[in-house]
Design a protein around this nucleic acid. Sequence first.
RNA 1: GCUCUGGUAGCUCAGUGGUAGAGCGCUUCCUUGGUAAGGAAGAGGUCGCGGGUUCAAUCCCCGCCCAGAGCUCCA
Length: 657
Amino acid sequence: MNDPAPAAGQVTLTLPDGSHRTVAAGTPVAEVVRGISEGLLRRAVAVELDGELLDLVTPVRNSGSFRILFARDARALAVLRHSAAHVLATAVRRLRPEAKIGFGPAIDDGFYYDFEVDEPFTPADLEAFEEEMKRVAAEASPFEREEIGLDEARVRMADDPLKMERIADFDEDEVISTYTNGDFVDLCRGPHVPDTSHIRHFRLLSTAGAYWRGDSDRQMLQRIYGTAFFKAKDLKSHLHRLAEAKRRDHRLLGRRLDLFRFHPSAPGAAFWTPRGTVLYNELLAFERALQKDDFLEVMTPLMYNKSLWETSGHWGKYRDDMFLILNNESGTHDASLKPMNCPSHYLLYQATRHSYRELPIRYVTFDVLHRNEVTGALSGLTRVRQFQQDDCHCFIAEDQIASEVAFLMRYILDFYATFGLDATINFATRPEVRIGDDALWDRAEGGLLAALEETGRPYQRKEGDGAFYGPKIDFDITDSIGRAWQCGTIQLDYNAPERFGLEYVGRDNRTHRPVVIHRAVSGSLERFIAILIEHFAGDFPLWLAPEQVRVIAIGAHAIDAASAVRDRMAEAGLRVHLSPRAAETDFREEIKDASNLKVPYMAIVGSREAEAGTVSLRARGAKKKQVTLPLDEAVGRLRRESEERALWGAAGTMEPL
RNA sequence: GCUCUGGUAGCUCAGUGGUAGAGCGCUUCCUUGGUAAGGAAGAGGUCGCGGGUUCAAUCCCCGCCCAGAGCUCCA
């Protein structure tokens, strides 16, 4: 049925059940909701009108689909948090009247508000603000909306220079609104919850500097971050998640589990300990095994003359991010450490003639890369200056795009699945600033999209998010506590083959341009290991664990038997350790040490085991529960679990019993 | 890069204008115990680096280095 055409001055709203309501244009949303039911009005938080979020005090201006949002709706949460930001500003203004207000939006996990103050806020200030916010909420002041003209806005916000600056950006005919709750007025687009009493379950989390409008040339404001929820239990679980993330912090676990460390002499570059190096190499070994049939591993120089970077185009705009090398004879910086592998692979490809019969050629490299990240960007293993990528460049004929992309996607997803990681897929299209004509982009995007569709995997489009040289597919992995990390990528590149004059000889005996696909799976191995540490909380599956088994001898008389167990397991290829001072140490301390290092299994050998030719296996986290097995059987099970790369706790593994 | 906060033993941290402490770890000895910290003794510190103020600086001031949090998901 067609929507009835509204009379002049009227708008028609289509409710989710398909029914229509016609009201006078300018009727407040609350009146519309009340017209449906008083009960709904009591529970309504906001509404969606043709997808636009409106609160109850906003006038309805246009016809469209009309849906009431309740506390359970995800979009309602953003409204609540925006209002929480206003409650925060209300509290700050009461306690620090001199604070100038900036912006205070809802963000993914909460909200923030920026203030201009002479002295930065302290943790004690935050506590005071939080207490004051409770009072503001208890007052249950309604959020009142007022629509005003530009001149009036200037008068109202005269005392707030930051708001005045925002006002200066408005067009003459724009609808400008203010929201008032109690004694606090803010220039604000809305929407808001009906009154401050909705802000019940919130927490201020942190404070930090933030540039006004994100511009590092402008003044630094003080930003307060917080979060808010409709339900106490949602707030609680969010705070729990934050605590969980802190507990899993790879920088702390990296020290505690003795995996890597940093030294001021080499900022942004990790020192891998013996244990960490095992982990790193196991990851590499896994990827080498996975790729051995379809990829060609190569090694290329780490240092190049600047002419290469001039060809690639990096010398111009990327030079500040490269580590340049001083030529002592000329006194100039005319070489650099490589920040990426692409040009190396192009040079290698180009060094010989290639036939169409060879394609696709997939060069993959784990070479060390250096990027001169600014100091403020460095963070643990997730943002470093020296790292290795599992970096692959596929040289293909243009008609191989679809099959190649499908192949690469399967490979990438299989790789993640080994770690129990799932990925969401993003398809990024041509950006504003780009090279190549539209016809080329049409072909590139079409080819990539067709390949993506063929896999049947769900994906999201990210318009304009592609690389300047081509569209791409990005993989965001989701870890065990629900955080997303951008890791893998498949990028189509028509430009590089042109720049580097890449060729292959076709069936027609003429030269053709290949297309290049850039592929990374883990992004950087360093960062991927950081993700794995946090994903597993340091409880690595057996195959990845730096030390797989710790042999514990109960009493000095069991030392010989324990050594025999250690030797037998080591022969079987397990990474096993028996403390050299086990004979002098309380075995309970050995158990403590193994537990703290999160060693997956302890093999306990006392007089009973020594006599019976058995070991008692105690799985990580299993406390006193253990299983006693003949030594060979124990070795067999551990080997199988390791070789199958079973996830810790997966069915069929020996997992925490 | 910029703002704020921090840097004390291998780790986690306390402390002071008169050159420094704890717990864990480490070393040695005792204990040989059936499932997460047995007992005793000992070693270990340019208090991040450089400069300044002071009779005296780990502490106060300045600079640098390193680390942590953050740096428009737009009124």
